[in-house]
Design a protein around this nucleic acid. Sequence first.
DNA 1: GCAAAAGTGTTCCAGATACACCCATGA
DNA 2: TCATGGGTGTATCTGGAACACTTTTGC
Lengths: 229, 229
Amino acid sequence: MPKTAATPPILTVDGMVFQIMDGKLSVLLVQRGFEPFKGAWALPGVYIEAGENSHEALERGLMQKTGVHLSSVRLVEQPFAFDAPNRDPRAYAVSVMYMGLCYGVQAGLPDAAATNLQNPHFTPLSKLPPLAYDHAAIVTFARNRLKSLMMYTNAAGFLLPKTFTLSQLQQAYEAIFGAPLDKRNFRKRILALNFVQETGKSDRDGAHRPAKLYQLAADTLQNYAPAFE
Amino acid sequence: MPKTAATPPILTVDGMVFQIMDGKLSVLLVQRGFEPFKGAWALPGVYIEAGENSHEALERGLMQKTGVHLSSVRLVEQPFAFDAPNRDPRAYAVSVMYMGLCYGVQAGLPDAAATNLQNPHFTPLSKLPPLAYDHAAIVTFARNRLKSLMMYTNAAGFLLPKTFTLSQLQQAYEAIFGAPLDKRNFRKRILALNFVQETGKSDRDGAHRPAKLYQLAADTLQNYAPAFE
DNA sequence: GCAAAAGTGTTCCAGATACACCCATGA
DNA sequence: TCATGGGTGTATCTGGAACACTTTTGC
């Protein structure tokens, strides 16, 4: 066995929380207050402590580091595991990486910038600063997963309020694909998938025709994948 | 904080290794030699020890518990993390779950059944015994992931020898989908995707016309997903 | 009445499906 | 010569893509 740290491996949990801000897909980042990577931006995460499971640690970490309550985030997928050899100078670490989607969430700590530089912020993926560890690669990985989720699940609904218009839904797709979609084709396709339903209400919001409001047919993540043959 | 074990959380790594045996998708299981779940079947796994990363621990664990060398397995995807609260009576544990595909691998320990009941075996998913922990749910989860991987990646090639016939490739798809496919349509589709190429050689193996041998165009996992629009 | 977003159908094309026979070989 | 699996083409159907105008509202 190689001569390395004698400390047992350490478990951390990180949250990768996405939200659409001003039409752009954004991810929740904090500025690290401690070494290593002090001052650099990173995904918010904490060590899992004795007596906690990964979900509880995620909840605590999100609140401590970003002021975001986990109950306002909808988790998608099984969490991934990432080796994080540089996470702690004393030992090798593994990070449990949760992915979540949300809408209208404000990040911010009560005594904010005062405490050690943190400074939670939803940052557009198109303007990511250099990130600590290999978080940049992880975000890219997640973005690709997110794209496939959009194609065959109802995940897009988690980036919107409880009720939403088809235009808002389309904007969510466009934010993630990074490309405009045709309105008529989009509507045909989405309505055919049957994962949203009319609420009967409409949204009267500007100097234009009111839009029908829709909601998710199921409030958990659902698969709408076609069979192979 | 709830009153629980004071020990820090523990990291384990498990391998979920799939292979096609007699045309059936099978997964590598061992019979547990220790409590908890002594005697029950489970995915092979070990604790990650000081000085190891998860990949090294996987390699060691697979060899110790099943006699399988990791070099004969092709890993797919980022490993998942599963909470495993019952893994260790002393503390909460998280399992790093790797998924792998292989072909023609023999499981077996030198002094096999002698040591504590282990008894590594590729078992068809259609005949899974009750599994320890929540491994049954994890296998089901993986099977679904595997189905989607087949639809838009070259993963099927990892369940076959270096060179293979289109019939073998089709059998791999059929084993995973659990349904027969049309030969002509299958070939058109696969050849259109362009992820296999002819080797120029052929396989003269029985009382019938020899089959052309193909190989993967790329020997790592590749995406062949269509764009959204 | 005008600006602004909502809503709506048809044509066209590509890719998926259904389907049956001949070919090369070993015994 | 026969049994066995390998290899091939066409007609049809379905779902995706391209494309522009009318409707409803607030000002």
